[in-house]
Design a binder for these strands. Structure first.
Lengths: 215, 215
DNA sequence: CGGACGTTTCGGCGCCGGCCGAAGTGTTCC
DNA sequence: GGAACACTTCGGCCGGCGCCGAAACGTCCG
């Protein structure tokens, strides 16, 4: 009893329950994204997240000025599924969530650059071409290569490592990563799936990548 | 989201959680008994019971001027055990709490079947005898074995897994688990410790188990 | 029929907790 | 360095909920 009521109290709030339900897709969300999703102020979301993390339901991963949160593990998802199943006997939402999560792992945008398997494929391709170093700094030949794609150096750091949440390895961020992502969108090489952050490589994109010597 | 928070809210209150935990022994309690157990006024208990019944967690059985309530079914017990298992590593403080917790870990009823070390011993014994499979389904020879103990199949699922929150492995629930527990009580092989859920194997029980080829 | 008892309904009280905005911290971008 | 941005901390407000006691209802028993 002493424990059940504390756990239940965490999920007894509409907003916190909405957070958990959103996170059931397996992705990591930022605090602001969750706040907007649940229509509460950022300050409110911040407090809720602290409580959920303290209760062991969520884990956080701080990166720069962002606070990513995700479910603490499969056991949390299972508990939530069990409770949902109890309250709402039949709902085919497991399948949709699973496929959505899979699409997200395949490729997605990470702010302004590419992430997921697609982002990692881009990074390894650029590494093979000698455009970037292992630490994801841009080489001198790499800068020439980028300029051919319309890149103009700015004050913003050109090459930068960003930890990929699903792949657990760094991918390319910074001005170069953002520019490549932008170019790929412009050329129709990648496109978003619905309104989510998931993106997919188009047939034209596969051709384009080969032309550039990627993949 | 919309459903989980409503279910969680029912269990988020100390008093209601205490009611449910008390009812985990599988018996029906009167409103006054629960009120005394949780140390609240009868009026308070009455309101809580109405909410729990409305939420589908409990069922009531009115008899004269008494209002008997019990868990709405095994699925409720399983949900409660799952939630307890999640918030688990609760280390008891104080000798009394420790010994009570220890007795509970050694053997207890989980709604209508056995749990704790005793429940796990039963499961492994049945597994050795070939009565149940590793997934806790009843085998054909197992059904014969059960019928010799007076078991009659019903519409209720015969063998079923229920996660044991102290042992972290599944034990036997379902109609078969309930029947065995009932038989053990009838034969005086197990008995309750005081009025708690904790049960202990009697000397006669130890003999009986050996006769059955258990343990 | 009257009294005892289990339960329920109804006010009323107090407090916890969710919410927001404002101000502050730390990071990124230019 | 300064501006923009994500997030956090802090007061303060407000609604909801759990609690109780008093009174009403229904049942059982003598």
């Amino acid at each position: 009893m002493a424990v059940v009521h504390a756990l239940a109290a965490l999920l007894a709030d509409r907003t916190r329950a909405a957070f958990c339900e959103a996170l059931l897709d397996g992705r990591a969300w930022t605090a602001a994204e969750l706040a907007a999703h649940a229509r509460v102020a950022p300050s409110t979301a911040s407090e809720h997240l602290t409580r959920l993390i303290g209760g062991g339901l969520l884990v956080e991963h701080r990166q720069g000025r962002h606070r990513y949160v995700s479910l603490a593990g499969p056991h949390v998802a299972e508990l939530l599924e069990a409770m949902t199943a109890f309250a709402a006997p039949a709902q085919p939402r497991g399948l949709r969530a699973a496929s959505a999560s899979e699409a997200m792992a395949r490729g997605r945008t990470c702010y302004d650059h590419l992430a997921g398997k697609l982002g990692i494929a881009l990074k390894t391709g650029l590494l093979d071409l000698g455009v970037v170093t292992g630490e994801l700094a841009i080489t001198e030949p790499g800068l020439v290569w980028l300029k051919e794609l319309g890149f103009e150096p700015s004050k913003r750091q050109t090459g930068r490592a960003c930890l990929d949440w699903t792949e657990r390895v760094p991918h390319l961020a910074g001005a170069a990563g953002a520019h490549l992502c932008e170019v790929f969108f412009e050329r129709g090489w990648i496109k978003r799936i619905g309104t989510t952050r998931a993106v997919v490589l188009t047939p034209a994109g596969a051709d384009g990548w080969r032309e550039l010597g990627l993949k």
